[in-house]
Amino acid sequence: MSVQDRIKEQIVSEKIMLYMKGTPQFPQCGFSGKTVQILQACGARFGAVDVLADPEIRQGIKDYSNWPTIPQLYINGEFIGGCDIITELYQKGELQKMVMAAQG
């Protein structure tokens, strides 16, 4: 299976999926850590993929979304944004609504 096919499956395996450096318990980058904190503040139950553990996914996810940086957040398979956009959506109260809608 190609990397892109693996990613397509992986992205929809959780309603809320975060591609990050490190794990939610031990983020390896400030931007990934901040995004985890925001998701937790929203009460989100999310899956996480550590791109540092898989170089193919690390590059593949950037190609998939045409987005050169990590973290990347997906809700219901749709690319929502990186750390800056997540922060802004949270400050506007929109991320909370998206999380609630996704979790039903």
């Binding site: 045409n66 987005w67 050169p68 940086t69 690319f79 929502i80 944004g81 990186g82 800056d84 956009i85 802004e88």
Partner: peptide, 18 residues
Amino acid sequence: SMVQQHQLVYQVLGEKMK
């Protein structure tokens, strides 16, 4: 969209982002 706006900037910066 915000995603498209950031993508525009990333496109301009290209390889420099890496």
